[in-house]
Amino acid sequence: MEPVEINAGAYYLRQLRADRHLDDRAALMEAFADPEHRRYVLNYRLRTLDEATEYVALRTAQWSCDERCSWAVAEPTTGRLLGEVGLRDLDLKFDTAEASVWTHPTERGKGVASTALSAALRYGFGGLGLQEISYRHEESNVVSASVAAKCGFTCVGPERTPAPTGEPLIKWTRQA
């Protein structure tokens, strides 16, 4: 599938970029260096420009193989990266996906995550025809719980398998 851009009102969702016109790599490295971000996002480390370049390339490849829709949450006038939102583990046969979102440390508490996630959900249900989207977070991540509730998810409860941190993983779902 081809990447799409989404107008999310105060923000716009676009593909992550690393080119001569727009380069998200420095902002990605800043976000992934933040201790709070690292506490919950364990599967990626972006310490170098090369690692950030690989991350951008991975997100592009995931779009093309229908594995994940991932957007940079951007400030509309400058294109500055404010976070990332995505629909991962896409299953277009069974019309399901799992939502994910993070916000750059300098942008937390401004409604970026819930606004971006709401826009991604509209695309998932309306544009892709998904019937169910899940959302998971560690039990201690009360901000993620708040974002899930604001975006209309219903809390299912703890998963059987804990998060990689060993902490209970809470599952939420939302139907079309």
Rank of each mutant, 00 (worst) to 15 (best):
R59H: 07
R136D: 02
D19V: 02
A33M: 09
L87K: 09
T60W: 02
L46G: 02
S118T: 12
R45E: 05
S144H: 05
H21W: 13
G129H: 06
T115H: 02
A31I: 00
Y40P: 06
R68P: 02
E75Q: 15
A120R: 04
G124F: 05
T115G: 00
A119E: 01
T106K: 08
P35R: 07
A61K: 13
W63V: 03
A119P: 01
E107Q: 06
A149S: 13
R68E: 05
A74C: 11
V142P: 09
F153G: 15
S144E: 06
A176H: 06
V143K: 12
C155L: 08
S118A: 15
R160E: 15
D24K: 01
C69S: 10
L28I: 12
R59A: 03
T48P: 01
R174Y: 06
S70K: 13
L117V: 06
C65N: 09
G157H: 06
E159Y: 04
L169N: 13
L22M: 13
F125R: 07
R20S: 07
W63D: 08
M29S: 03
V56N: 04
P35H: 06
E75K: 08
L169A: 14
G152R: 04
P162H: 10
E139T: 08
G86F: 03
A33F: 11
A116E: 13
E30Y: 03
S114C: 11
S144D: 10
D91R: 09
S140K: 14
Y44Q: 11
L16M: 12
K150W: 01
D50V: 06
R122K: 14
E75N: 11
D95C: 13
A52S: 04
S140W: 04
V101S: 05
R59I: 00
R38T: 12
F94H: 14
A8F: 02
R45S: 15
R59E: 08
W172P: 12
T96P: 12
P3N: 09
R160N: 11
E5S: 12
P162A: 14
C65R: 10
Q175W: 14
A61L: 09
R80W: 01
Y55D: 03
W172Q: 15
L121R: 15
W102A: 00
S118L: 11
A97Y: 05
T165G: 14
Q175F: 10
L117Y: 01
G83E: 06
A61P: 09
S64K: 07
D19K: 07
A61H: 15
T154S: 15
E167L: 04
C155P: 02
L82D: 01
L121S: 09
Y123R: 15
S146K: 14
Q62A: 06
R20K: 10
E84A: 02
K110C: 11
A145H: 05
F125P: 15
K171V: 07
F125I: 13
R136V: 03
E167G: 05
S114L: 10
A31F: 00
A145E: 07
P164L: 11
A8K: 14
L117R: 01
